[in-house]
C-alpha cells in the first residue's frame, strides 16, 4: 500500500459518503444519474465476486463490503425510497446503459489476462467502470445547474482515478513484474472522461462561481 493508492481509496470513499450524505440528509438525488449508479453496482458486484474466495487484507475486504453496500443502497434509495425517488430526474436520465454493458462484456470476452469466469468478469468490471460515468456526465450536461454536493461527488470520483494512475506509476517503478496493461488503459480512458468536467470545475472554482456547464 502506497500513499497514492490510499489517497485514491480515500477520495473514492469520500465521494460515496458525499453522495450518501446528499441522499440521506437532504433526501434528494436531484442531478444524480440512476443509470450510472446501477452501473457502479454491477461493476462492484462483478469485480468483488471473489470476496469470499480470495483474501488480500482486512482493509481490502472491508472496502469491498463498503463499496458493495453503498452502491446497492444508493440504487435502492433512488428507486424505492418514497421521498428520494421523487427528486430523481427520470426524464433527463435517459442514457441506455445496455449500450455500454454489451460492448464491455464482448471486449472482456475477447481481451483479458486469463480466460476464466472470475477473470473475465473482473475484466468486464474494469471496462464497465471506465465508461460508467457517462450517463452522469450526460445528465449534468442536460440539467446544467449543478448543486455543490453533486459537483463535489464527481470531482472526488475523478480525483480517485487520478490517484490510482499515480499509484500504478509508483508500483511500476518499485515492484518487479508489476505490469497490467488492461487495468491501466481502462483506467486511463476513465480518467480522460473526467477531463472536460474538471476543466469547468476548476474554472468555476477559480472565478468563485457556481459550477455551470456550457450548453
Amino acid at each position: 500500500m502506497n500513499i497514492f493508492r490510499l489517497a485514491g481509496d480515500m477520495t473514492h470513499l469520500a465521494s460515496v459518503l458525499v453522495l450518501l450524505l446528499k441522499i440521506h440528509t437532504i433526501k434528494s438525488c436531484a442531478g444524480v444519474s440512476l443509470k450510472t449508479q446501477e452501473l457502479y453496482a454491477i461493476v462492484f458486484a462483478t469485480r468483488y465476486l471473489d470476496i469470499l474466495t480470495s483474501f488480500v487484507s482486512i482493509y481490502n475486504t472491508l472496502m469491498k463490503l463498503i463499496f458493495l453496500g453503498s452502491s446497492f443502497s444508493i440504487v435502492w434509495y433512488m428507486k424505492y425510497h418514497k421521498t428520494v425517488r421523487r427528486t430523481y430526474d427520470r426524464d433527463q436520465d435517459t442514457f441506455r446503459h445496455w449500450f455500454l454493458m454489451l460492448p464491455c462484456l464482448l471486449l472482456a470476452l475477447l481481451i483479458h489476462e486469463k480466460f476464466t469466469f472470475f477473470e473475465v468478469l473482473w475484466t468486464f468490471s474494469l471496462y464497465l467502470e471506465a465508461v460508467a460515468i457517462l450517463p452522469q456526465l450526460v445528465l449534468l450536461q442536460r440539467t446544467r445547474n449543478i448543486d455543490n454536493l453533486t459537483g463535489q461527488y464527481i470531482f472526488l470520483l475523478g480525483g480517485y482515478r487520478g490517484f490510482y494512475i499515480l499509484n500504478w506509476i509508483y508500483r511500476y517503478f518499485t515492484e518487479p513484474h508489476y505490469v497490467h496493461w488492461i487495468t491501466w488503459i481502462a483506467g486511463l480512458v476513465q480518467t480522460l472522461l473526467y477531463a472536460d468536467f474538471f476543466y469547468y470545475y476548476f474554472l468555476s472554482w477559480k472565478n468563485n462561481k457556481k459550477l455551470q456547464l456550457p450548453a
Binding site: R5, V56, E113, K114, E119, W122, Y164, H177, Y178, T183
Partner: peptide
C-alpha cells in the same frame, strides 16, 4: 503478468 497482484487493488 502476475494476476494475483492485480487483484490486490480495489
Amino acid at each position: 503478468g502476475d494476476i494475483a497482484s492485480q487483484h490486490d487493488e480495489l
